[in-house]
Design a protein around this nucleic acid. Structure first.
Lengths: 239, 239
DNA sequence: CGCAGTGTTGAAGCATATCAACTTGGGTGG
DNA sequence: CCACCCAAGTTGATATGCTTCAACACTGCG
């Protein structure tokens, strides 16, 4: 069930069987969320944190005029609002972009982990640090990359993250997201995203149809994006 | 010496005297860094983490063509590379924007804290989560705000963060940073930043001269920025 | 069958980058 | 002490990337 979380953590450090057992024990309540509904709402003070088992979710903020910016994409194996455990009040919402299987963990149980399991605590901390590293990379992409490079970079990132949790088949992965949503991820208009996408398609580096992305030329895509996966911390070492 | 760190942590939860003593004990080695030099270089694997006692620093990444994006501004009281404790390899550099007083902490000592001080560990974790929340807000600003709102938002944020650590006098604070640097923070060209700045000055909401920013009309500035400080988590509550 | 959401396209306008020139002020060497 | 220089700030002109608006095609669904 929560093997995707193990995959996520274990590509960064070794997890003992006891630690896995603890995680299994506290990740008790499972459910599903329909596409388009909030997993956590802005301003909420949840008593639980949510782990995504399957599906895509997004963190987002709304401006007063109704425009939206998505600040993170969360996939299977992501502890999507672990940070609410310590931040308490949600300063943003979390939205299911597709139907999502989730599991929730009581904050009381997480607290117990921090009291008794230092290594596991560090691993969970690390998981939130990885999210922050992704945020920084997005800031770079938004501030200094061309729209084409920004989009290419996102595809590279998703490809790497999804392969860690076994969601990549060959050179393809499911990406059940409309162009409107993707525009809100990249901070551009739908029209411009559409043209940027077609420019990438025209270069023959990827295809995107039926909610599935296939990478045709990884080297070229990576070159367009100037993609360097260091920030994803996919190194297994003692933490 | 490290009172600014206490100020930073204590506006979010109570610190016991024992916890303060522990922090004082591990923050042993002090030094200063000259303006313009790296505190930590990209690709480094530091064995210590750095706390800023005084001055301004920036996290940054460079693109292949030499352009730069600053992904975070760090001020007094910020544990600037606490995340290196767990991320191990720096995926970005940290630069002193002014002369900085710093203190370093051995990762071995931080590890001991995580083994024996669960509450303090959560407080340090929280500190990195606050950085991530700021990252998300910057993503929103870059993606969906006008350049004027983006700049106004940054000034609001700096004002709030600097007042926590006692760096605001009246409505003014020191901001020893060139327009070139600020342009790299906001992801815009220097020319455009200059014009945006003059637009804010023209509105009479702030002045910026001699490396000092004075806020003339807080309500108007806040309105331009649509500033909501929730994300800074300045709520004192049990964590 | 009609409707709503999604993708696509072209045209026009605005925001921002780029380029180039000029000013200002502080620091430094003659 | 002056002359010069360099970094930083400022300004205007031009070019480009991106947004907005509007229209149309396609698809799945009630």
């Amino acid at each position: 069930m929560i093997e995707c979380l193990f995959a996520n953590l274990e590509c960064r450090d070794v997890l003992s069987e006891e630690e896995k057992a603890i995680l299994r024990a506290i990740c008790c309540r499972a459910s599903t969320i329909g596409s388009g509904s909030d997993i956590v709402s802005q301003g909420a003070r949840p008593g639980v944190s949510t782990l995504i088992i399957d599906g895509f979710a997004a963190r987002y903020k709304l401006l007063e005029d109704g425009r939206r910016q998505i600040t993170a994409l969360q996939i299977a194996g992501d502890f999507v609002d672990l940070h609410a455990f310590l931040l308490k009040t949600m300063d943003h919402g979390i939205l299911a972009l597709s139907a999502c299987s989730i599991v929730v963990v009581d904050h009381a149980d997480l607290r117990k982990v921090t009291e008794t399991e230092p290594h596991l605590t560090r691993m969970l901390w690390l998981d939130t640090l990885k999210d922050a590293a992704i945020h920084r990379e997005w800031i770079v992409a938004m501030g200094r990359r061309s729209s084409k490079a920004q989009l290419a970079h996102l595809v590279c990132e998703l490809f790497m993250r999804l392969s860690v949790v076994g969601r990549v088949v060959g050179d393809s992965f499911q990406f059940p997201v409309s162009q409107t949503v993707l525009a809100d991820v990249l901070g551009m208009s739908v029209v411009h995203l559409n043209k940027t996408l077609q420019s990438l398609r025209g270069d023959g580096v990827l295809t995107w149809a039926n909610h599935q992305i296939e990478i045709l030329d990884w080297a070229a895509l990576r070159h367009i994006a100037e993609f360097d996966p260091t920030y994803l911390n996919l190194q297994r070492e003692p933490r």
